[in-house]
Computed example of a mutant assay.
Amino acid sequence: MSVLDEIISLLQLKASLLVQRDSSKLLEILDPRFVYINARGRRFDRGGYVNSFCGPEGIRFHSQSFDDVQIQDFGTFAVATMNVHDILEYEGEVHSGILRSLCVFGQTESGWRWSAGQTMPVTT
């Protein structure tokens, strides 16, 4: 399997785990030093990300898909950029939108792990 295929598979898994709210499996694909900045500029560590996006009081994803994926393989790490299409529920209201996202993946002995990410609104 190519790096492109492996990273796209991991992105699809991440989306599925967010929709399923499967925090234990999401933790398995996140690097222990994971860092993420959301579209509002808030920074999360690994635990904060999982709690905010899979926890009982957090955001509830109804769906997440992506397109315009470009991946650069640097050997020990890879960088993916893409458009992310989210439908999610927050504080009782359903929201949908398209965001631009950058994800960094690190190569480990057991495969790729999501190490860092940043998401921002798409402006026209």
Rank of each mutant, 00 (worst) to 15 (best):
M82E: 08
G106Y: 14
T76R: 05
D68I: 02
D86N: 12
V84L: 15
E91P: 01
V94M: 05
E89S: 11
H85M: 09
R113D: 01
Q107K: 15
S96P: 00
G92R: 04
N83C: 09
V69M: 09
R113S: 06
C103S: 15
Q70Y: 00
E109F: 00
V79T: 11
F77C: 03
I71H: 06
T108P: 03
Q72D: 11
I98V: 15
M82N: 09
T108N: 09
E93A: 14
V94K: 07
T81F: 02
C103N: 15
A80E: 08
W114C: 10
R100Q: 09
E93I: 10
C103M: 14
V104R: 09
G106F: 14
T108Y: 10
V79N: 05
R100E: 08
R100W: 06
T81M: 08
I71C: 05
L99Q: 11
H85A: 06
I71N: 02
D73E: 00
Y90A: 14
W112R: 00
S115H: 00
V84E: 14
N83S: 13
V79P: 02
E91L: 10
F105M: 03
L102N: 12
H95Q: 13
L102R: 05
G97W: 05
L88E: 14
G111H: 01
V94R: 10
D68P: 04
F74T: 02
S101E: 13
T108L: 06
L88F: 15
E91D: 14
G75C: 04
N83I: 10
